[in-house]
């Protein structure tokens, strides 16, 4: 029995260390002068972090950070609103075509949005908004997975009697939705909000296609811009990435518990 427990512990610890090493390397390497990263031992932090920060702040970093933030907050707020509205409707109302709608939402979950990117780019160009941040927000709004999750969250957490009695008390549907329904599924809302933030924050391909001027840089594009044929400033790049990880790290450490619980709701209850 002792040996078994020991094996188990070793396995768990080993896996966790492997999980952490690249993450840790990002932090520790960001404290090196670019040319020094591979000279010394990258596991022990050096003293160049402030210099690296100076480099990126002298460049376009603040603007890029702000852009990423605007995109992610907007994508998060509106997609959670839109998806939870759909989830509410699918649970509270009986209407014709409800089955069709259900199938439709299942389908939206499977649609590989990314491969429509050419059509999307042309569409945005025709709307004359391809030089703005909007295309990088719009694409996240109708999240199929989000709607699907919201449906299953409302199913398990919103008693229909509550809605009924609120109606009898004279509340209108918008009041019921905002004041009764949404508070009932707070963990679900939080989870979806975290994920939407995470996805749009880490998104790489959409900025790659839509960012074509420095004012619109997002963090991934900014970091790429620090690389050139003559000298790639790895230290500065990593410092930028380290700072970019902070918001998700903060949000995650606050919401980890409810997120981990919420993540599975859809999958387990299916």
């Amino acid at each position: 029995m002792k040996i078994k427990t020991a094996c188990k512990t070793v396995f768990l610890v080993l896996m966790s260390v492997i999980s952490l090493i690249p993450f840790y390397l990002m932090f520790s390497m960001s404290t090196f002068k670019s040319e020094m990263i591979f000279q010394g031992n990258p596991l022990i932090p050096s003293n160049y972090f402030i210099e690296n920060l100076k480099t990126i702040f002298a460049s376009n970093f603040v603007r890029s950070y702000l852009n990423s933030f605007i995109i992610s907050v907007c994508a998060m707020f509106f997609s959670v609103l839109i998806c939870s509205m759909a989830g509410y409707a699918m649970n509270v109302y009986q209407f014709r075509l409800k089955k069709v709608m259900n199938m439709f939402i299942m389908m939206t979950m499977m649609v590989p949005t990314q491969i429509g990117i050419i059509g999307y780019m042309i569409e945005m160009r025709n709307l004359r908004i391809n030089n703005t941040l909007l295309p990088m927000i719009f694409v996240w709004l109708a999240s199929g997975l989000g709607a699907y999750w919201m449906i299953s969250f409302f199913k398990t957490s919103l008693p229909l009697e509550l809605v009924e009695s609120a109606r009898i008390d004279g509340a209108n549907e918008l009041q019921i939705y905002f004041q009764i329904a949404l508070p009932c599924i707070r963990p679900g809302i939080l989870t979806l909000a975290l994920l939407q933030f995470l996805w749009s924050w880490n998104s790489y391909m959409y900025p790659l296609v839509f960012v074509n001027k420095t004012e619109n840089y997002t963090i991934p594009i900014f970091v790429k811009s620090l690389a050139s044929a003559f000298r790639t400033d790895y230290g500065a790049q990593l410092a930028g990435l380290t700072l970019a990880t902070i918001p998700v790290l903060i949000i995650f450490s606050f919401g980890a518990k409810s997120m981990i619980r919420g993540l599975t709701a859809g999958a387990v209850k299916g």
Partner: peptide, 28 residues
């Protein structure tokens, strides 16, 4: 409850999906 409110609550999702997810694919 059978028509007006379901439409109000589902319309944003359906419209956004068509505009920003499905239409680009059809255009492709």
């Amino acid at each position: 409850y059978r028509f007006f409110w379901p439409v109000v609550f589902l319309a944003p999702f359906v419209i956004c999906f068509f505009l920003f997810n499905l239409y680009p694919i059809l255009y492709s």
